[in-house]
Amino acid sequence: MTLYALRRLAAVAGVLLVICAVTFAIFYLLPSDPAAHACGKTCTPEQVTLVREQMGLDRPVHEQFGGYVAGIFAGRTLGTGPAALECSVPCFGYSYQNALPVWDLLTDRLPVSVSLAVGSAVLWLAGGLAVGLVAALRRGTVLDRSLMAATLASASVPVYFTAMMLLLVLVQQLEWLPYPDYRPITEDPAAWAGNLLLPWMTLASLYAAMYARLTRASMIETMAEPYIRTARAKGLHERTVVTKHGLRSALTPIVTIFGMDLGGLLAGAVITEHVFGLPGVGQLTYDAIFKADQPVVLGVTLLAAFFITLANLGVDLVYALIDPRVRYA
């Protein structure tokens, strides 16, 4: 099991390196000129050339890429002469927009995105599993059909629409919730949760609907398995049959999807953060893309890739815990 985990971890490193190279290549091939962006609108061509040299953009791509990767693990000095910038480990470069280290930008924004992702994940898992389970056990009844119709509606509505509606009703009309304004959990946990409740509900309403449908389908399939009949033939209580024998098997596909979804959200829910004005990684991504801020986009991409591959690894490890058939494979 430990060996398996180590092997998988090495694979994660490989995947990240490849993603890094691909992202780097895409930016190298793009027609936009970061030096011109960094220099500003009033720069002469000579000044742009100077900036390009300073930023190392005139060097061959493999050297630039080598420098970037080396910087992550060893730190590096960017530029030469009096304008040189010391970039400490882990160095992901500096933002072209405001000359702040990308690493600092990411670590500043990360708690917001993690708070958003984890909080909504708790909500949608609880809601989705409960609704799916009830629908599966009451399959074919009016309750099942109404729940499934509701989830279909909930999953079909775009996030920004849900966000607007919730804002309108819960914040403006009923005034039950404050307009989201991020507060760190370390300062005031109650304010943290209260302010994030709206974004959590927005994201969760989308995901919970999908999880409810998935749970229902998986549970119906599992409850038709011969081993469920065996469990009933043993004289077990229906409760035990459903939870111990049914739900545990039905959870395996849900674990897979959950890992992917959570991994993707940890690196920022772009639309949700944007709608609610939350200063998370998603918001950072949004700005960086529009300003062609290559180091930031690269950093965000790597962060997202890191979370997704890590979530995948987590999924595989949890899978091995749930299903003994996976352990020795």
Binding site: P226, Y227, A233, S249
Partner: peptide, 18 residues
């Protein structure tokens, strides 16, 4: 399960894999 018990055709799918 206590006084009447049953065994089935396919013993693999009739046993819980987990």
């Amino acid at each position: 399960g206590r006084r009447m018990a049953m065994i089935f055709q396919d013993p693999l799918s009739s046993l819980h894999p987990f």
